[in-house]
């Protein structure tokens, strides 16, 4: 297998200056397994037993189970996210379940990267370039929303936590990693941030 290179590898995050102990913590997790799934009701019925949980049907919703999250991307469009390494196996299982149906299963693991944000200032930091309503009353744990940060399209997944200590995974195209990372650093400068690498 070819060597995998993270979207921010050229930024040398390990040696990049940051503030130890700052409220906001950032890291890149480049190689999470991401599989795109498209299809109608027949595909949903075929796939749910394989996944072991229900696919989300409305904007903002996620489905979760056994270490996986399914994001609602569009009315017939999902991205399923796993820990690194299982993408080929998952994609194969989904393809087999959908055989004969009108569907698409695509391994997106190399296309997208994940930037993990943790800590209370992250709403203000994201609001520097994202027009979504990020107030705790609107953006709650377990939700996933698509929008943009500056000029880069992003998917925001509020993984867990509470209003004081939220955890958000930001998914963006791998080629935007440099832009998004520097955008976040710029926005986070006033709060201070710690890079965990």
């Amino acid at each position: 297998m070819a060597e995998r290179i993270a979207g921010t590898s050229h930024l040398d995050l390990k040696n990049r200056p940051s503030t130890r102990g700052a409220q906001l913590r950032m890291l890149e997790r480049p190689f999470k397994a991401k599989v795109g799934l498209r299809g109608g009701e027949d595909v949903i019925r075929a796939v749910e037993p394989v996944l072991g949980f229900a696919l989300p049907r409305r904007v903002g919703e996620t489905g979760s189970g056994s270490g996986a999250h399914a994001f609602w991307i569009g009315p017939d469009d999902w991205i399923i996210v796993y820990e690194p390494g299982r993408e080929a196996q998952i994609a194969q299982a989904l393809r087999e379940a959908c055989r004969g149906l009108h569907h698409a299963v695509i391994d997106l693991s190399e296309r997208m990267t994940t930037i993990c944000l943790e800590g209370q200032p992250l709403r203000d930091v994201l609001a520097a370039g994202c027009p979504l309503d990020l107030h705790p009353r609107a953006f709650r744990p377990g939700m996933v929303l698509q929008s943009h940060l500056g000029k880069a399209n992003v998917i925001l997944h509020y993984v867990a936590g509470n209003a004081d200590r939220p955890f958000v995974d930001l998914y963006t195209n791998r080629s935007f990693a440099d832009y998004v990372w520097k955008y976040l650093e710029n926005a986070a400068r006033e709060f201070g941030y710690e890079i965990v690498a």
Partner: peptide
């Protein structure tokens, strides 16, 4: 900025459209 209501996603900022 205009708020535009996507039939699938609800009201969102004009810059997303």
């Amino acid at each position: 900025m205009l708020l535009i209501t996507c039939p699938h996603c609800g009201p969102r900022a004009e810059t997303e459209f």
